[in-house]
Design a protein around this nucleic acid. Structure first.
Lengths: 285, 285
DNA sequence: GCAAATTTGTTCGTATGTATT
DNA sequence: CAATACATACGAACAAATTTG
């Protein structure tokens, strides 16, 4: 039993696209042209192109045409530490935290990784709000639901492309005790982790990342320039950071971060134990 | 300008589904019924339902009806180690590796995590093949492309549901030097890492994970019971494991593993440094 | 076990709307 | 403003898968 016509046509177009038989800058043949050349109705052509669209291969622009979607060079974010400490063993949580804290995707460390990979990062100034803790945030920060928390939201770009959306939540407690910069909309140049260490003797000792994938919501579709039809899901990276300070030797959560990364241009790397030096290149999948 | 009809209808149906206004066991109203109740053509109803299908909310069964898709309780896999070592600091790569090696998603450790989470794991017997190393495999294992490598492919189930597909590649070298069990189709009860340690004094000292997301291929759609329309992508987890043995103190890659997890039922957790004890619960996203 | 009824799948033709050039 | 190209919507017919009597 052969596949239905629209699927056969879609497969054929896919094959033609992937072997560069179309000009990448110019639109594909129009629906009317394809309707003629494949001797089917325009509806059937549209079904075929809708498939390609759902596969993320093409992008339809009303009034203009159907174009081949540009494939991104994936950007790799290292979630564990990625800078080897010279002259010290590789011990997360040990005493010699460098400027980037434990590294891996945090503000300062993330920016450094972008630079180290020879790409151009642009992190907009954070938008700061006092919010009531959602159930999720209150559970992670161990504050009662509805408590005020500091929310710092930031848009990040790489090579001019929208790259990630990040929101960090801090207990109000921290600003009350003197970390007042958390309330200012500007960047914290040295990185929030180092700042909290300097001001409150709050030292990050570890973090837990959770990775999941879901469909992009309205805001995310708009910011990342994704078309809903293309069905590009987003990574959700939830990080709970733990620290100790003078008052407590038992680690407690002091920051909860939710980051959103479109899956068409992002990958993650985790190094555990002793692995070769150097930044990991993207995986071919 | 209001949304088109099919989108309005889709949103309304979504709202009705999410507030449990339909019986989860019985099909939704048929296309003909909806066509009447919404006073539109059947094609328009089909467009609306196709949207819900693409959102993964419903599942269409020809001849039978349209059903609400069951949501999975996500299974969480810890990629870093997840068992605290009693009486020892938390140092990956240190001397006191327990039974599960460095832990985190490996055969033995993965099975233990499933058990620890109170769920029922079933890992089928691996299918073993001698293959020519692909470009990807040869790069990771640092063997010339086209060299023979051992491939061990395994299907994994949790609570009776297909959960992941995993293929590990080992240099032939290892079996030549005595690790002959790698060539047998049976399970390696103690875990491959421990086995290699016992037989070849090959000790795992670290690993690097890469995480990406892509569309499921034919095989994966079939195995995981996914419908193409539902557009559920899969996680790709690539792990390169490094070890040392008597002959070399410089870590070298001895195993490369590619695992595939459907994103509708899987999440990952990474612990870095000092984090609270206990298995992390799924993220709410 | 088979035939009929039901339900979704495919394809056609047509008309009109909306966005872009 | 006109032409072009994709978007929405209607109606119809037949096919294929599944359930039911």
């Amino acid at each position: 039993m052969p596949d239905p016509m629209y699927r056969q046509i879609a497969e054929q177009l896919r094959e033609e696209i992937e072997s560069d038989r179309f000009d990448a800058d110019k639109p594909l043949p129009t629906e009317s042209q394809l309707q003629v050349s494949h001797k089917v109705s325009r509806n059937t052509i549209r079904q075929a192109i809708d498939l390609l669209d759902g596969w993320g291969l093409v992008e339809k622009r009303p009034g203009s045409g159907t174009f081949i979607r540009k494939q991104y060079e994936p950007f790799v974010t290292t979630l564990s530490e990625w800078q080897k400490k010279s002259g010290s063993e590789d011990k997360p949580g040990s005493e010699d935290e460098s400027d980037s804290g434990l590294g891996g995707g945090e503000g300062a460390a993330a920016f450094n990784e972008v630079k180290a990979r020879g790409r151009m990062g642009k992190f907009l100034s954070p938008r700061v709000e006092i919010q009531l803790a959602s159930k999720n945030v209150s559970e992670r920060l161990r504050v009662p639901p509805g408590t005020n928390v500091i929310s710092r939201h930031q848009q990040r770009f790489i090579d001019g492309q929208p790259w990630s959306l990040q929101t960090s939540y801090y207990p109000m407690d921290l600003s009350d005790r003197g970390a007042t910069q958390l309330l200012l909309a500007g960047d914290i140049k040295e990185g929030a982790v180092k700042y909290l260490g300097d001001v409150l003797q709050l030292k990050q000792v570890g973090y837990r990342d959770r990775i999941a994938v879901r469909r992009a919501n309205e805001t995310e579709l708009r910011f990342f320039g994704l078309r809903e039809d293309a069905n590009i899901p987003v990574f959700i990276l939830l990080r709970t950071a733990y620290g100790v300070d003078g008052a407590s030797t038992e680690p407690f959560p002091f920051r909860f971060t939710e980051s959103v990364f479109p899956s068409d241009r992002n990958q993650f790397v985790i190094n555990v134990g002793n692995v070769p030096d150097g930044l990991a290149e993207p995986a071919k999948i």
